[in-house]
Amino acid sequence: MEEKREKYTKYEKARIIGARALQIAAGAPVLIKTDEIDPIEIAIEEFEKGVIPITVKRDK
């Protein structure tokens, strides 16, 4: 997953991690190997690795 990652603002980052954590908490398959059990921590790790299948819609 070494594609060129977009630069997110802190608000975008928070929103993406939040949405992903909700998915994980609801039982979505986790996309990385991790020892974490807290959905938010897992989502953060996924975000840092750039594997979350969510982006933001920009330029309105």
């Binding site: 969510i54 933001v56 819609k57």
Partner: peptide
């Protein structure tokens, strides 16, 4: 504003 202004899309 802030996180409220962000629209998410699936990648």
């Amino acid at each position: 504003l802030g996180t409220g202004a962000i629209e998410l899309v699936a990648r």
